[in-house]
Design a protein around this nucleic acid. Structure first.
Lengths: 177, 177
DNA sequence: GATGAATTTCTGTTAATACTGAAATCTCAG
DNA sequence: CTGAGATTTCAGTATTAACAGAAATTCATC
């Protein structure tokens, strides 16, 4: 891959900025953006050059992205260096990201809420607080149960479903009588 | 409101931690958690005491939360100080948060992607990059169009819908013939 | 198993963000 | 108007997270 075009640079910078707003390291997001745009797997050195950050920083970011499961290590014929490529399927990519954030952040929160509600007897949990936590817990359980099911739908089904939007309501009414 | 129980403290700390992971200031999230748990509106001074942070920090956080639209200023009879209360309806609260994040972060990104695709003629946008950006753009347009519609549904409709989960698929098939 | 390239880990530095306390401003009763 | 309480702004400080460069390790080849 040769030097980045201004459009590619703009995209990568924006993506990095977006990352920081959602609690993702800027460089990690930039590396991901670069690999997403790259037609071929890139070696770490090239990422270093293209983004202008330290080699070690790239190494850490790649580890992080592999941990998320949206970047993987591949080998290229005649080159003994590790190369890296991003998923290119956007739907799959976001599904994985959502799954991971659910697993890392939301599930532990749900667990905490559940534990709190259970401990209500022993520890002093007043009625008002219990109510608030109960409602938060219900919200999370309901939405996550839904997400877990929907995230398993094949992409074609999902897109067709999303495109229905409001229409789904009337179809549901019709479908039931 | 008297001193926080250990359960309340735990919840507030967890919520603050959760905030940082999603790009929200820890104190802002803590103030929000505290007000969410509070049966009555609280004056800034009391928040300061309960959370053990600087008065000015609370002031800034309250401004931020009001900007998001999930906390509002109210007055209490016989007390000239400003008091603050959080929304207590969880569904409404998350709807507002999602709306805001969409408005602040996702919409500008969509705009950027659209602009890039339009500029493809003038600036040098190679076919591969165009494809990648097109797919990202499509993903965002589809999912945001869906969200915009669904977020307007009354809560009762939304919860009933979510609880269907997978069932919605068979109902849709049935409904159409 | 020695050699050199590639990669990762680690530590100190830098940059960004959050926070405090003081000062300034606002508000309103008297 | 005046003054006390309440609130916000702001400049400096502290904390945290990100990063670079050096050192250590791994890996493949001979």
């Amino acid at each position: 891959m040769k030097a980045l075009t201004s459009i590619q640079q703009k995209f990568i910078l924006h993506w990095g900025e977006m990352g920081t707003r959602w609690g993702i390291n800027r460089t990690v997001a930039q590396v991901h953006a670069l690999l997403y745009l790259s037609p071929d797997p890139l070696p770490a050195d090239e990422i270093t050059t293209l983004l202008g950050v330290a080699r070690s920083n790239v190494s850490t970011s790649l580890k992080e992205l592999q941990g998320w499961g949206i970047v993987r290590l591949v080998h290229v014929m005649g080159d003994k260096r590790d190369h890296f490529e991003s998923l290119h399927d956007v739907w799959e990519m976001f599904r994985i990201i959502l799954d991971e954030r659910k697993r890392r952040e939301i599930d532990p929160t749900r667990e905490m809420l559940r534990a709190t509600l259970n401990a209500s007897a022993e520890e002093g949990l007043d009625e008002f607080t219990r109510m608030r936590i109960q409602e938060l817990s219900d919200f999370m359980e309901t939405s996550m149960a839904w997400y877990t099911q929907v995230s398993r739908w094949p992409q074609s089904v999902l897109t067709r479903f999303l495109r229905l939007g409001d229409q789904v309501l009337s179809l549901l009414k019709g479908g039931r009588g």
